[in-house]
Simulated assay, not measured.
Amino acid sequence: MSGTHTVLHDPQGLIEGELPLDRGPHEALVTAVLAWGCLDLAPRDYEQIALQLTGHARALAADVRHRASALPKDDGRAALADVVLREAAQILSVPLDGTARCAQDRARLVRALYARLDRLAAPS
């Protein structure tokens, strides 16, 4: 324990995998961000939106990874999840730059991760 915070050791990400995702508000944010035309926000506003989407994308990627790892090795859905997870890692490795393009890239990633999560949850 450090100060008033408890530090947890969870190398397998089991705690994160059990947290429910608040899907509705994030899907609404994705829809709004992808519908932007010529929107002129301050860079810090774009960055805050991208930061929100980044955090949710990381949680989604952990959920996709967890569900895919539970599938049999010969299940094609796991292979497709690996492709989406590699793309997610690449996008998330790019630093935020406070632009509409950056926020929209993160929004597209969240949409792709939800699509993969839904396919993993569907019966094969």
Rank of each mutant, 00 (worst) to 15 (best):
Y46K: 02
A59K: 10
H56T: 10
L80I: 04
G98L: 14
L41G: 00
R65E: 11
D97K: 05
L80W: 04
A89M: 15
V64G: 03
Q90H: 13
W36F: 11
G76D: 00
G98F: 02
L29E: 09
Q48Y: 06
V33C: 07
S69E: 10
A100F: 08
L53T: 01
L34F: 01
L34N: 02
R58E: 10
A68S: 00
A78T: 00
D40E: 15
A62W: 09
D40G: 12
Y46W: 13
Q48S: 05
R65I: 05
D45K: 01
L39R: 14
A35Q: 14
A50Y: 02
A88W: 00
V94D: 13
A59W: 01
A79N: 05
L41I: 13
A32C: 15
D45S: 01
P72E: 06
E87P: 09
G37S: 09
L53G: 12
A89E: 09
I91E: 10
V30K: 09
Q90A: 09
D63F: 10
L53K: 07
A42S: 12
T31H: 13
D75E: 05
A42I: 15
A62I: 09
Q48M: 08
D97H: 01
R44T: 11
A57I: 02
K73C: 10
W36C: 05
G76L: 03
A100P: 08
R77A: 10
V94E: 13
K73G: 15
C102F: 14
V94T: 05
G76P: 00
Y46G: 08
R67E: 11
Q48E: 13
L51P: 12
D45I: 06
L29Y: 00
Q90C: 08
L34E: 12
A59S: 01
A70E: 11
T54D: 02
L92A: 14
D40S: 13
L92F: 06
H66T: 07
P72W: 05
R67K: 04
L53I: 03
D82Q: 01
C102W: 07
R86V: 06
Q48N: 05
C102M: 11
I91V: 14
A81V: 04
I91K: 03
A79T: 09
T54S: 15
L41Y: 02
L85Y: 00
A81D: 06
L85G: 05
R58V: 14
Q48G: 04
R65Y: 00
A32T: 12
L53R: 00
A61V: 00
D74C: 05
A100D: 07
Q90P: 05
A59L: 12
P43Q: 03
E27S: 12
R65S: 02
R58G: 15
E27Q: 01
S93C: 15
L92W: 02
E47C: 04
E87L: 01
V64E: 03
D40L: 08
D105A: 12
S93V: 03
Q104T: 09
L51T: 15
A89R: 10
A88D: 01
L71E: 02
D63C: 04
P72C: 08
C102L: 09
L34V: 12
A32L: 15
